[in-house]
Design a protein around this nucleic acid. Structure first.
Length: 209
DNA sequence: TGCCAGGCCGGGT
DNA sequence: ACCCGGCATGGC
């Protein structure tokens, strides 16, 4: 499936350049939000010189919320950025290197205990910022898998995550691009408004029933 | 114009 | 253990 997607769409190149902290901020800001809106918010943080753990920590909540306005649900997300950075300073002295030195499984649990970081955001942080072997599942993953009848409707996040992790080589570049490919194919061929897998979908050979 | 976007939380069953 | 409303901007 990955090869079919890759052949069709090419390498997606998610989260190139940028610091690890920027990637984490992006992971939080993109919750239920279009990426283009997140880019604007990150640009605003950069211009304000606030795109760092200290920068977020030392910015008053209303100011922070205003800077990230374009990402939507900005009052909620401002608190989430604050909570994460506060937690980072309390537990790792504000040092992402120390944070990512923890075993992946342990760190994932710790991240999930930070309010505002759910399973997808935790896995995105681990994979895209920490380059750890954590497969990221999202709404597109669910839609692509169910639309092709590859999993039942009631499949949970962790079940889908395990499905990928237990059936793929644990290669970070593969995890990175496969998730991006699922988003890509989901946007175009598994749209919410369309009831079924749409014509031209490169995953049609994998459709069950 | 309405729908949707790279979710998550908290309160209610 | 699920289910659902709330959060909110910007693009098509």
């Amino acid at each position: 499936m990955y090869q079919a997607l890759r052949d069709r769409f090419g390498h997606q190149g998610w989260w190139p350049g940028g610091s690890r902290f920027e990637t984490i901020v992006g992971a939080i800001l993109t919750q239920n939000t279009n990426w283009s809106n997140v880019e604007k918010a990150i640009g605003a943080l950069q211009r304000a010189d606030k795109l760092s753990p200290k920068g977020i920590r030392d910015t008053p909540l209303p100011t922070l919320a205003d800077l990230i306005r374009s990402s939507g649900t900005f009052n909620v997300k401002a608190k989430r950025l604050k909570r994460f950075t506060d937690w980072l300073f309390e537990n790792y002295d504000g040092d992402l290197g120390r944070m990512f030195a923890r075993p992946v499984g342990e760190l994932r649990k710790e991240l999930l205990a930070v309010r505002g970081i759910g399973p997808e955001t935790a896995d995105a942080i681990l994979l895209y910022a920490g380059e750890k072997p954590a497969f990221v599942v999202d709404a597109y993953t669910y839609r692509v898998l169910t639309r092709h009848a590859l999993v039942p409707e009631e499949t949970s996040y962790d079940e889908m995550k395990s499905l990928f992790e237990e059936n793929l080589p644990q290669e970070i570049p593969l995890y990175n691009d496969f998730h991006a490919q699922l988003v890509r194919v989901g946007k175009e061929f598994c749209r919410k408004s369309a009831p079924r897998c749409e014509a031209g979908c490169p995953l049609q050979p994998y459709l069950r029933r």
